[in-house]
């Protein structure tokens, strides 16, 4: 049991990322409100960033601001940090695009409920 607990503590960031991903995913599937769907999408994004950033960390090393010797064994891995930066920018852009689409849908149908929008669209097509 203590082995299991120890590994849970050792992998705390990855486990947190997976749980956050699960929360975001279940809400993405179950929420009817489109705004809430976008929020859960953002929660999923954040879990991925947490996972990537935790993969770059190395125990006992410092952030890659090279002030002393340029020896790779002193600093953490800079690549996941750069990937997270890219991810955040793309996430912001995609969220803005989604929200703009939702605003247009609201203007047309007067609701942000996904089922109602589908129903109204079907009715319109008939």
């Amino acid at each position: 049991m203590s082995d299991f607990l120890q590994s849970v503590i050792a992998y705390r960031f990855e486990i947190g990322a997976v749980i956050l991903f699960g929360i975001g995913f279940i809400n993405l599937l179950l929420q009817k409100n489109l705004i809430k769907k976008i929020i859960s999408f953002n929660v999923m994004d954040s879990s991925i960033f947490l996972f990537l950033a935790s993969q770059g960390f190395i125990e006992g090393r410092i952030a890659p601001i090279i002030t002393g010797a340029n020896d790779a064994s002193l600093y953490i891995n800079p690549i996941p940090t750069g990937l997270v930066l890219t991810g955040i920018v793309v996430s912001v852009s995609v969220s803005a695009f989604f929200l703009a689409l939702v605003q247009r849908l609201y203007k047309k149908y007067g609701t942000v409920n996904f089922d109602e929008i589908i129903m109204l669209a079907k009715k319109e097509a008939e």
């Binding site: 050792a10 960031f13 990855e14 935790s54 993969q55 960390f57 190395i58 125990e59 891995n77 996941p80």
Partner: peptide, 8 residues
């Protein structure tokens, strides 16, 4: 987590 031998 945090090991230097991480393949990343």
């Amino acid at each position: 987590f945090g090991s230097a031998g991480n393949p990343a």
